[in-house]
């Protein structure tokens, strides 16, 4: 068990490092110059889930690692991540949550991102409502955590340290949006985790039994300027993501001014009355692109 964890950690280390290496454009220099095979290569996982071969000497000599782990609790300097979900465009394609599950290595029925039917009042229409962790600026979960395992970072992200979490589940009670999941040790998931031990997230380990996990805005993508998995998986461009400081959000295709978007489209946050100050805004489901159709399949019926 311990060895496994060590291995996992080492793999993660390589992961960070490889991220740095690819970014620098150093990786994969297996050029036809004749020194092929002269150096021992190791397989490493880059932060965005790619396997790459890197010269062993480069893995060991890297110094970017310690800095990376220090920043996990601090956040990416100068950033303030924000999300806008345009309810006019969602038609329950469920690609976002599939992308999320795939990216974070967890199996249904766990959904960090849920898409559910919503109807605000009797005579108003139904619509699809994607919901994830809102990374609140006044986070009730962080208030109640007894050990600081869930924490607020300067870039707005609410992270979880799965190595510290004691599994009391109080944060789940405190979250009025029920956006947190607990790893109960579902045997299928445990098996799957064994076969997919590599993580791409450096703030959260969704495969650790007995701890809490949730959407984390894919911060390691954020640090490299890549949009979160859900945003990239959505076929209808429902989810916009960006940096509030830059005043621009993007769904991968469109790039819009954040303030204009929210001001002109009546952006709102769920349960403003709670004062939790979410970092996820919604655009009301008016003039929808797709008529509401009930989902013929009931998802996640299993326990």
């Amino acid at each position: 068990m311990e060895d496994e964890q060590k291995n996992r950690r080492n793999f993660l280390k390589f992961g960070f490092l490889a991220a740095g290496l690819t970014a620098a454009g150093v990786a994969l220099n297996k050029v036809a110059s004749g020194d092929e095979g002269a150096e021992e290569k190791v397989k490493v996982l880059t932060a965005d889930g790619r396997l790459a071969e890197v010269a062993k000497s480069k893995v060991e000599s890297s110094e970017s690692l310690s800095a990376a782990s220090k920043h996990v609790r601090q956040g990416i300097p100068g950033r303030k991540f924000i999300m806008v979900i345009d309810l006019t465009r969602c038609k329950n394609a469920r690609k976002c949550l599939e992308g999320c599950q795939k990216m974070h290595n967890f199996l249904p029925p766990v959904e960090w991102l849920k898409v559910k039917e919503m109807q605000d009042s009797e005579l108003s229409g139904k619509y699809w409502f994607p919901q994830l962790c809102y990374q609140c600026d006044n986070p009730p979960c962080c208030k109640v955590c007894p050990v600081g395992a869930t924490f607020k970072r300067s870039d707005g992200i609410v992270g979880i340290d799965n190595e510290r979490c004691i599994g009391c589940k109080f944060c789940m009670a405190a979250c009025p949006y029920s956006s947190r999941s607990f790893n109960y040790g579902n045997p299928k998931q445990v098996e799957y985790s064994k076969n997919h031990p590599l993580k791409s997230c450096h703030t959260m380990d969704p495969n650790m039994v007995g701890t809490v996990s949730k959407c984390d805005f894919c911060p390691d993508f954020g640090s490299k300027g890549i949009l979160p998995a859900c945003v990239r998986s959505c076929p209808n461009g429902v989810i916009f993501y960006g940096d509030e400081n830059e005043d621009v959000v993007s769904n991968g295709e469109q790039v819009l001014r954040l303030k204009d978007l929210l001001v002109n489209n009546g952006g709102y946050r769920q349960f403003e009355v709670f004062g939790t100050k979410p970092r996820v805004y919604y655009l009301p489901p008016v003039n929808r692109l797709f008529p509401f159709k009930p989902d013929p399949v009931e998802h996640n019926q299993e326990e």
């Binding site: 690819t22 994969l28 036809a32 965005d48 790619r50």
Partner: peptide, 21 residues
């Protein structure tokens, strides 16, 4: 291996980027 720029395992999304050395 003459002319080889590199080898790359594609990611989960079936994509990979070769940085030209």
């Amino acid at each position: 291996g003459t002319g080889l720029v590199g080898k790359l395992y594609l990611g989960k999304d079936g994509e990979g980027v070769f940085e030209i050395p």
